[in-house]
Write a protein that binds this DNA or RNA. Structure first.
Length: 298
DNA sequence: AAATGTCGCAACCGCTCTTAC
DNA sequence: AGTAAGAGCGGTTGCGACATT
């Protein structure tokens, strides 16, 4: 687009890994001239690559601001949440993870998260056979849940049950989520908390307006249901954005029992009171997300 | 120490979408 | 309006590193 056909690069393009010299050439050229037309970049930069390859290399590895290294728990749960909502829309998911590329996220999904999700679902199936979810790995690949009116998530009670029945270490929630164990802070509930978020601005702002809701399913009766929210928020806020030390090796049952015994405070207080946005630590897992409290109890 | 298996990541491929002509 | 070319996206592959036998 915007490129003269006469600028079409010659064939005979080099393939494979990029050398440091090639990287340097491409970086220097793009930083100096930009990339109005990728097909002309390799020619002008003296590279024997095609424009497509140059573009990919720049986007995924050379452009400024890229964050390399291990994904944080917040990034991971953001991916999980967005993937549940969007399916394999890696580029859209990447929009909410500054410094991460779609390719990186895609690779991370296939190499890490996919297995964790599958394992979790398997665990859920064994623990609570009646539990249903729209987010099986199969249907996530083929039909993003953005097409579904309702997003089902595990209930806190089901996790409670899983926690109590997690004598089998292979099914430990910490392991499923790859959480640190033995005295390390765990962030398991953050995943669930993140799933309360609704993305108004993804897919052109379709979520809230399309009536999609996050559902806490089969977990609590009506009188407890508001507390579920509160408890998550409570734990989230008290632990600097995570559920911290009270959760070791999965879920601390005493803590859950305590939470299940009754409400501690109002959800609304947490939003308006101590300043939710200020309380969510670090990069703010939902910095790009519009907080929405679309929770339905059934 | 060598052979084999597994995993993770970088990069390519093919398709669709967008835009200029 | 039709066509061609470029850009962008998601799926897949190939290879190197590491682990296991």
């Amino acid at each position: 687009m915007g490129c003269k056909s006469s600028e079409k690069p010659k064939p005979k393009h080099k393939k494979g890994l990029w050398s440091p010299e090639e990287d340097q050439r491409l970086r220097n050229y793009v930083l100096k001239h930009g990339h109005p037309c990728w097909s002309s970049v390799p020619i002008n930069a003296g590279l024997q690559r095609n424009g497509k390859s140059c573009r990919l290399r720049w986007i995924n590895y050379l452009r400024p601001g890229l964050k390399r290294g291990t994904f944080t728990m917040q990034e991971e749960e953001t991916i999980l949440t967005l993937h549940r909502m969007l399916g394999n829309k890696w580029s859209q998911i990447a929009l909410h993870l500054p410094g991460r590329t779609d390719n990186e996220i895609k690779n991370y999904w296939h190499s890490h998260l996919k297995k964790k999700v599958a394992k979790l679902e398997e665990m859920e199936a064994h623990t609570k056979p009646e539990y249903t979810t729209t987010s099986t790995s199969e249907n996530m690949d083929s039909s993003p849940s953005s097409n579904n009116p309702t997003i089902l998530i595990p209930s806190f009670e089901s996790l409670h049950q899983m926690g109590k029945s997690s004598t089998d270490t292979d099914h430990s929630i910490s392991q499923v989520f790859g959480l640190p164990q033995e005295g390390h802070k765990s962030s398991l509930p953050k995943l669930l908390f993140a799933e309360w978020l609704s993305l108004e601005d993804v897919n052109g702002g379709g979520f809230a307006s399309s009536g999609e809701q996050v559902v806490i399913r089969d977990g609590f009766n009506q009188q407890n249901s508001s507390f579920v929210q509160d408890s998550f928020m409570h734990g989230y806020l008290l632990n600097d954005g995570g559920f911290g030390g009270e959760f070791h090796d999965g879920i601390n049952n005493d803590y859950i029992d305590e939470m299940l015994s009754g409400p501690r405070f109002k959800f609304e207080d947490q939003i308006s009171g101590i300043g939710f946005a200020d309380s969510v630590s670090g990069d703010d897992l939902c910095s790009d997300l519009n907080m929405k409290n679309h929770v339905m109890y059934i």
